[in-house]
Simulated scan of single mutants.
Amino acid sequence: MAEQHESSQGIPVGISACLMGEQVRYNGGHKRSRYCLEVLAERFRFEPFCPELEAGLGVPREPIRLVGALGEPPRVQGTVDPSLDVTDALAEVSRAFIEGHRHLRGFILMKGSPSCGLERVKVYHHNGMPSHSDAGAFVRELRRHFPELPLEEEARMNDAVLRENFITRVYAFDDWKRHVEAHPGYHALLQFHSRQKYLLMAHHVETYRELGRYLAESSKRPLDEVLAHYRQRFMAALARPATRKTHTNALMHVFGYLKEALDGETRQDLLASIEEYRLGHVALAVPVRLLNHYLKRHGSDYIREQTYLDPHPYELGLRNAI
């Protein structure tokens, strides 16, 4: 399923330019990511961006940092010369980038950067002492003006759960862009929800129920309002990484579509694999592979079309590690 959702050119994903090996950092260096360039580049069409370079800062350049008090939007100033203030310039180039890149399905960011850091970027008092932490200036603009866009730091993708979660969100957003946003209508939205049901359930069952109720009444509301509400709630739910407990719940619901068609021994084998996954003895790929095997023979079109069973390319092996 995930394979069918990819374009021949790859899914468009933004990335901090330094992660592509571009020498755009303040010291003239880069932070080339082997995982992005050697693995994900086979599936994603990366579009690099360095907000600091676009804001007029040269290479090499004086380092910048976030400065401000807790509770106020931090300024972005030079670490040596505080009169170097690029807050407004960064905001301007960030907004321009966003307006020109609504086609993106995600963005991979550089950890700790005052512009691109996703979280825990140090904010300093005006006296130079550390104060608290925040997101980078570019990330704050992304969250303000493109909140549904999946974001992740390259370094955090060393965590198997966060890696799988981010790539799942990219493929789900790609599905939305291709099949709902490109052909907006109530029918397209209902079809999207139908195939994404168990993926949504695995991430946040409350939102799964909420959106089901919402869609039951959606035809009474303006289409633009319905699409905006659904997109926001759906992507926010997927941003919550699924757990063994929530995956187990989704697996049991999928199993329910098979149990009448299978003999007792096969049912017990499937249930045992789900229980072994719940207990942490095997990876998620094990029960999913078994379910897919029997669904090909006995499943309805509805259950076989669930993106939960195949949310991203199998070759990435993402479910072998969670």
Rank of each mutant, 00 (worst) to 15 (best):
129 M>H: 08
64 I>Y: 07
76 V>P: 00
278 R>C: 00
95 R>M: 06
193 H>G: 00
108 I>D: 00
217 E>F: 13
321 A>N: 09
147 P>G: 08
139 V>L: 06
129 M>D: 04
119 E>A: 10
171 Y>V: 00
96 A>Q: 15
5 H>C: 03
124 Y>H: 14
40 L>G: 02
134 D>H: 10
34 R>A: 15
74 P>M: 14
185 G>L: 10
299 G>V: 12
138 F>K: 10
275 E>Q: 12
315 E>T: 13
181 E>A: 15
304 R>M: 02
267 R>V: 07
62 E>L: 03
32 R>A: 09
31 K>Y: 13
144 R>D: 01
277 Y>H: 09
11 I>F: 06
233 R>P: 00
262 L>G: 06
10 G>L: 10
141 E>G: 02
74 P>H: 09
208 Y>N: 03
144 R>Y: 02
36 C>T: 05
157 M>F: 06
313 P>L: 10
30 H>R: 14
183 H>M: 12
138 F>E: 06
182 A>L: 11
287 P>D: 05
35 Y>I: 09
50 C>R: 04
245 K>Y: 08
309 L>P: 00
232 Q>K: 12
223 L>K: 15
114 P>V: 10
199 L>R: 15
15 I>P: 00
297 R>H: 04
22 E>H: 10
104 L>M: 06
155 A>S: 13
113 S>R: 05
75 R>M: 07
17 A>F: 12
225 E>P: 00
285 A>W: 07
275 E>I: 04
95 R>H: 05
276 E>W: 14
102 R>S: 05
231 R>V: 00
24 V>G: 02
306 Q>K: 02
229 H>S: 05
113 S>C: 03
259 K>C: 01
216 A>L: 14
269 D>L: 05
134 D>I: 06
170 V>M: 03
137 A>D: 03
86 V>L: 14
82 P>C: 07
196 Q>R: 11
301 D>Q: 10
246 T>W: 07
294 Y>E: 01
147 P>A: 13
117 G>E: 08
176 W>Y: 12
105 R>E: 01
220 K>I: 14
222 P>F: 09
144 R>S: 13
179 H>D: 04
318 L>D: 08
292 N>E: 12
28 G>C: 11
107 F>K: 12
322 I>A: 10
51 P>G: 09
38 E>F: 09
289 R>H: 13
87 T>E: 03
234 F>D: 04
66 L>I: 04
249 N>V: 04
106 G>H: 06
309 L>A: 09
269 D>E: 14
187 H>L: 09
322 I>H: 11
273 S>D: 09
45 R>Q: 14
183 H>W: 13
17 A>L: 03
79 T>K: 13
248 T>F: 03
145 H>L: 02
123 V>L: 00
104 L>D: 01
282 V>I: 15
231 R>W: 03
